[in-house]
Design a protein around this nucleic acid. Structure first.
Lengths: 347, 347
DNA sequence: TTGTAGGCGTTATCAT
DNA sequence: ATGATAACGCCTACAA
């Protein structure tokens, strides 16, 4: 039920009258609008007196530049767009910190949109960003349709901070090295004496697929078998995980993220499975949750902040002529804690 | 296969040449630019043939409207801005869901900015939103300076979804009723037989202050004493909380959020304090964490989504003439679980 | 149904 | 140092 938006035109504006423009400022200061433009932007070549008068006039009027007008004439918006797969996902939001800090150095403002985990929404948000003429676009999602990637890459420097299957060459990609991250974690399980390995995930993303590959390589390298458990997000509660655990004889498990790992911990406790004695557990992302569990949770840390910073650099490079695509994998870091037992000592 | 539109290429443009405008679309379709404008916006009064030709022309060219130009001429941006105190804070991000869904009904796009917990950054982000001429602004933070609130309220319909001290009348405020939420939680502790009550928080926000008031009212109503523990966020780890717990003889504690509550659980376990036998614990926000702890965590749920929706409605009302400020408190809901023992039965 | 002509607020290029 | 003035891309009366 949409509301009627074209209510009788002018009556009731809510906020005050017309917003002051550069012209209002100019009149009040008794100068031309060009001079106001220069003064307000801090251009050199404006006499101190004028500058002063203009500043006061602007302040009195509560003048604020209209970025639409500016963007239109300059051909650049000064905006960096970030589209997140899911604003509630900590892995994605941490990338924003890196993006923000680097963008600030370039004098750009960062605006964020939430894809709410849906490809349609993602597509829509990307379109909005492109219409806004962002000077660069950061995509933190593995679920962007290829057509949308191409469209974005064609319009503005675009970098995906996530693992993509066969990304178009117009889009740069930055990810952490999921294969080696998962492999290293798996090797840690193995060197803790685990022989019945498992990977449990609540996602079917390319990221997760890469981690499966990492688990496989490490397991096969040690001549061990491994099992993969895929739980749909809605069916990934403590009970479901407990069931999975009971069915399999797994004694060492890597999880797709820390929340899943905490769920495994809870399920194990409920099922009388001791951690790490009966089951070693490793999470992914190294969130602060890891320090709040009992036992504390081992986890694979990803350098989200550095990846976010790199994304902005890549955008800058594209804007300045680079044509070849960036394809970078950042090395993750395994953080061992009690949930895998004492490092180096088997069970 | 000719995609070269500008032979004289400046040394490295990155993406293709000039972006197509409504004029390019018009020429290619052999019509005037006004007709293109109408057709593309779905205005009635355009012959089917023209409409078709224009659509094809636009598609061929990869045309995309420039929202700066549109915003400039229409006087509205079609944008709703949301400034979050901290993009990593789940309480704040959940408000976004409500904002998004209602904004979509109004045909507005939502853009988000992150205040990173700093008043300066918040101020800066708000300014960016105002320069963008957002049609409405949602502030999810208790830390916005009053000057910024006034500035925003003067420029565009603004609503703070958070507790504010003495908000300006130009800003609408929506919050959950923290006093009653905390009071109800405290009464639950009392009726579970707890007599040495506590409130532990990692924040000094007005929100937290309101909850203290709720705890006080319930405690005093029952003739019981209570203690308030304030831990700075950096010093709110398991160890610090354990120390606090040991020092006091508290047997029933309300926490400012679920993460703090989980920390309390971890600290209690470490200190040999049994939950709920020795200590009853209640969190705030009712995040999914609550189901992953042992024992499961009682918590106070806030209707973030409804608050987000209401924010958009309030903006709409302001835009349509309402002058009086909205001051609304949404009722929270206490969810009892094992961390407070069986409801209704004392320890 | 279609086209013409301003104008939105700003920047930037010319003059002066 | 300052001021006209022409864009920027789009929408919208007003004409035809």
């Amino acid at each position: 039920m949409t509301r009627d938006r074209d209510a009788a035109d002018s009556p009731g504006d809510g906020t005050a009258g017309r917003r002051p423009t550069i012209i209002d400022v100019a009149e009040r200061a008794g100068v031309s609008k060009s001079l106001v433009s220069r003064a307000l932007r801090g251009d050199p070549g404006v006499s101190p007196e004028r500058r002063e008068a203009i500043a006061r006039s602007a302040a009195d009027l509560g003048y604020r530049p209209n970025s639409a007008a500016r963007s239109l004439v300059r051909g650049r918006s000064g905006l960096i767009g970030v589209v997140l797969n899911e604003i509630g996902n900590q892995h994605h939001t941490e990338i924003v910190a890196g993006v923000e800090s680097r963008a600030a150095q370039l004098g750009a403002s960062v605006i964020i949109a939430d894809g709410a985990g849906s490809p349609d929404r993602l597509s829509d948000r990307i379109e909005t960003m492109l219409e806004l003429r962002v000077d660069g676009l950061v995509l933190a999602s593995s679920w962007v349709a290829r057509a949308d990637l191409e469209r974005a890459g064609r319009s503005t420097p675009t970098v995906a901070v996530s693992r993509l299957i066969d990304p178009p060459s117009s889009v740069d990609t930055i990810a952490s090295d999921d294969v080696s991250g998962a492999a290293e974690a798996t090797r840690a399980l193995i060197s803790a004496g685990r022989t019945r390995l498992g990977y449990i995930t609540t996602s079917t993303s390319p990221t997760s697929a890469a981690r499966v590959a990492g688990v496989r390589s490490a397991a096969e390298g040690a001549g061990l078998a491994y099992e993969v458990f895929e739980l749909p997000p809605q069916r990934a509660g403590r009970a479901e995980v407990a069931e999975v655990l009971r069915g399999s004889g797994v004694d060492g498990v890597l999880c797709n993220n820390d929340v899943t790992a905490v769920t495994v911990l809870a399920a194990a406790r409920q099922s009388g499975i001791r951690v790490p004695d009966d089951l070693a557990v490793i999470g992914y992302d190294d969130t602060r949750l890891c320090l709040l569990t009992d036992p504390e949770l081992s986890s694979v840390d990803q350098p989200q902040r550095a990846m976010g910073e790199r994304a902005i650099d890549a955008i800058w490079e594209r804007a300045n002529g680079r044509a070849r695509a960036v394809r970078e994998d950042f090395p993750p870091r395994l953080v061992l804690r009690a949930s895998t037992g004492v490092p180096g000592i088997g069970a």
